[in-house]
Design a protein around this nucleic acid. Structure first.
Length: 494
RNA sequence: GGCGGCAUACCCAAGUGGUAAGGGAGCGGUCUGCAAAACCGUUAUUCACCGGUUCAAAUCCGGUUGCCGCCUCCA
């Protein structure tokens, strides 16, 4: 099966066929830079990062655009609260955004335009809409007249009449219809302003995506993504603006990710129940957050809790642990002795698992990016690899056995890598994890290792009660010991 | 009020017509000085409930209940 994606516009799964063969135009709504990002932003970023990585893996050339909204009411309000220029706010939070995204291993898109660097493009779109009689000036603002665009409501499945009846729309004397939305907003004194044919002002929120998308991707994008909450009004309005202005279909496939919930309720600024990424990463490994997000289908809601994130972290440790012992115990083998028959004879079940993984992984990902299922297959391979290693006890693997293990390991890393997982060396991963957790429980590596040395001295003299006491003390502090043939290893359990 | 989504074991979770993936946790075993980790075995005749279609339904249709989201800034 080729790649199929769920399209919000048609409410069904469709085969993905880009407009131009081999080339995908991808646009994802970025952030408004007025605050730190929370894990809902992280989910969206991770989900579309994986979609981007998978499209690249499939061999597409991907032009990926993700914008920054760097002028808007919330930014201005924040700047006023702090008594600083709005640039100060924007710079601070864009920098923080990059820190968070880099920590999470989210790849940079091809283009990351700022709204304020594309004002002329926006003015041009608004001018076209006014010329066509679809937008109108009222007071110092310019509005889009929704009843002049016949398809209005097609993405969110609403009808103008229903929305009117809903009556939750704010009344504005300037608007011909309460659902009309602002394209250009006249500035009050002291607010950031740009010159325009309609007087000094700033762009409305929706117009930036239409203008910047058109600039970097042309009139029609293959994929446009964002959180489910953007479907209405943001994406509905983008469609109206772009299709009314350019007379071409705006987007072929609309993809929307589900929310992160806390106690089964949407995490949001207004409810105040949100966790910002940088706080979470003080105690949770970034790849664990990734695994957590990708363990569920991207369109479903996910409930975030200490328990669910800890489960993800344990799973990640398991993957790295197997991968690590595999690297330690399967030295490079002379190429001459490797052949498929020989490999298979080492362990037919593992050999099958290895042979099947690529097809299984593709099948899962081609089914609307079913990362949860793909991860299930990765764990299947991990278990078979670990079982194979265990058959050799503490001994290193040799010859064909080592070759088979290495083959499995490299496959595991390749496919996990498409999900942005197993991107570190196991040693680095466990070091990072230790540093993170030690900081959280307030111990240093030196203290722990000193106690472990003491215990091992006691063990040498067979003073097991003293040794066990040290182990118990450490366990109470959150340090779990593991005696291995290569010495005592330890990890922090929270 | 309008529109939409979800309900699978102790917990998380995949599965959208062919007879219940995977992870966590628990229990029994192997290994270990003892542990831990790991491995093996085990934990849903059953998929919120009631009807219907079908040779066959967790999957399709109708109804009921419960939860959630959008309609206002929101990933």
């Amino acid at each position: 099966m080729n790649l199929h994606v769920y399209n919000t516009l048609t409410k069904s799964k469709e085969e993905f066929v880009p407009l131009e063969p081999g080339r995908v135009k991808l646009y994802v709504c970025g952030i408004t830079a007025y605050d730190y990002c929370h894990i809902g932003h992280a989910r969206s970023a991770i989900v579309f990062d994986v979609i981007y990585r998978y499209l690249l893996y499939l061999g597409y050339e991907v032009v990926y655009v993700r914008n920054f909204t760097d002028v808007d009411d919330k930014i201005i309000r924040r700047a006023n609260e702090e008594g600083v220029d709005y640039h100060t706010i924007v710079d601070r939070y864009i920098r923080a955004f990059y820190e968070d995204m880099d920590a999470l291993g989210v790849l940079r898109p091809s283009f990351e335009p700022l709204a304020t660097e594309n004002i002329p493009q926006m003015i041009e779109v608004i001018r076209i809409l006014i010329d066509k009689g679809i937008a109108y000036k009222a007071g110092s603002d310019v509005y889009f007249q929704v009843d002049r665009f016949p398809g209005y409501g097609k993405l969110s499945g609403r009808h103008l009449e229903d929305m009117m009846a809903g009556a939750r729309v704010e009344v504005d004397a300037n608007k011909k219809n309460p659902l009309d939305f602002v394209l250009w907003k006249g500035s009050k004194p002291g607010e950031p302003a740009w010159d325009s044919p309609w007087g000094p002002g700033r762009p409305g929120w929706h117009i930036e995506c239409s203008a910047m998308g058109n600039r970097y991707l042309g009139a029609t994008f293959d994929i446009h993504g964002g959180g489910k909450d953007l479907i209405f009004p943001h994406h509905e309005n983008e469609i109206a603006q772009s299709e009314a202005a350019f007379d071409q279909p705006f987007v072929r496939y609309w993809l929307h990710n589900g929310f992160v919930n806390i106690n089964n309720e949407k995490m949001s600024k207004s409810l105040g129940n949100f966790f910002i990424i940088r706080d979470v990463l003080k105690t949770v490994h970034p790849e664990a957050l990734r695994l957590f997000v990708l363990s569920k289908h991207y369109r479903s809601p996910v409930d975030y809790s200490d328990e669910t994130i800890a489960e993800a972290e344990r799973g990640l440790e398991k993957l790295y642990s197997t991968f690590g012992s595999l690297l330690d115990r399967s030295p490079e083998t002379a190429e001459s002795v490797i052949d498929d028959k020989g490999l298979r004879s080492q362990d037919p079940e593992l050999y099958e698992e290895i042979s099947n993984l690529p097809a299984e992984f593709h099948e899962a990902m081609n089914n609307d990016f079913n990362t949860a299922q793909a991860i299930g297959y990765l764990f299947g391979l991990q278990r078979n690899l670990q079982r194979f290693l265990d058959r050799f006890g503490a001994k290193n693997l040799k010859g064909q056995a080592a070759a088979l293990a290495r083959k499995g390991g490299s496959l595991l890393r390749t496919y996990a890598g498409i999900l942005g997982l197993l991107t570190r060396s196991p040693d680095d991963f466990f070091e990072e994890l230790k540093d993170l957790k030690l900081k959280a429980i307030g111990l240093t590596k030196e203290e722990v290792e000193r106690l472990i040395d003491m215990r091992n001295e006691a063990r040498k003299t067979k003073d097991f009660s003293a040794a066990d006491q040290v182990r118990l003390d450490l366990k109470e502090k959150g340090i779990q010991l593991e005696d291995t043939p290569r010495g005592t290893r330890w990890r922090v359990i929270l």
